[in-house]
Design a protein around this nucleic acid. Structure first.
Length: 257
DNA sequence: ATGCCTCAGCTCCTGAGA
């Protein structure tokens, strides 16, 4: 079984690249973030034509998440129950025996800002939602654009970016709280190379210079960690002519019975 | 230079991203 996550920064612009990528990587589940389109514009038929069912939770202009899958998605939940939110950021479903939570974490803009405060409230709510979901579903994966680095190894310039957004102690403490629920950082189960990033700024040739951050993650429960066989970042789509600023992350698991 | 790209939309600029 393979699952992947990809922030595609506008599904309207990136749909051909997503279809191409699925052709080369016929994963069982692909979580998408930053659809940037309203629900009525979701290209459900284009995915059906290449063998994928879809669940989506979008809004005009900003945010928006989807789960593409080869098999049926059940128990679909949009956003975080009990957390009133105008922003479409979370989509959960059970697929092939795995509880999948796809999420587009808030950016936070800058420490001390209103958006940072919203990010912290949202992270509190997510934590409680994931905890309850883990109690009900031992085989659980939380994947998406976290907009948080685990530590300095995830940062191209940890000295220059110390304390900046995605790198603050407060954000990293929230990420640690998710791990403390019993989740495991799938990429680091497999000793990734140094400077393994998932996002690079569009400016200043950041990708070519590998000036990036690792902010897209796949966290898996203990039962799934025992079945994990590989986790990789696919930098290939970042080399496309009109790329997303994020690269997909891909997890391979032994099948869940 | 709180900019440098890219995207959406109240589109010839601004807000937001990270």
């Amino acid at each position: 079984m393979q699952l992947a996550t990809w922030n595609i920064n506008s599904l309207t612009v990136r749909l051909p690249q997503v279809l191409d990528w699925l052709g080369a990587h016929p994963v069982d589940v692909l979580a998408l973030q930053e659809l940037k389109l309203s629900d009525d514009k979701f290209p459900v038929q284009a995915f059906a034509d290449v063998g994928y069912q879809a669940q989506w939770h979008g809004q005009k202009t900003y945010n928006g998440v989807a789960l593409l899958s080869r098999s049926a998605a059940t128990e679909v939940v949009k956003n975080i129950p009990g957390f009133a939110d105008e922003q479409a950021r979370v989509l959960s479903a059970s697929i092939a025996g795995v509880r999948v939570i796809g999420a587009y974490f808030p950016n936070g803009q800058a420490p001390g800002s209103d958006k940072f405060a919203y990010k912290m409230r949202w992270l509190d709510a997510l934590h409680d939602w994931v905890r309850s979901e883990m109690a009900a579903h031992p085989h659980l994966v939380l994947l998406g654009d976290y907009n948080i680095t685990f530590d300095d190894a995830d940062v191209w310039d940890p000295v220059g970016l110390v304390g900046s957004i995605h790198c603050t102690d407060e954000e990293r403490a929230q990420l640690q709280r998710l791990l403390d629920l019993g989740l495991h950082d799938a990429l680091r189960l497999f000793a990734p190379a140094e400077k393994s990033f998932t996002w690079w700024d569009y400016r200043e040739f950041a990708f070519r210079r590998n000036r990036g951050l690792r902010i897209d993650h796949i966290l898996i429960s203990k039962a799934l960690a025992a079945r994990a066989r590989a986790c990789v970042i696919d930098k290939t789509p970042r080399k496309n002519e009109r790329p997303s600023d994020h690269a997909p992350v891909l997890l391979t698991l032994d099948a869940v019975p």
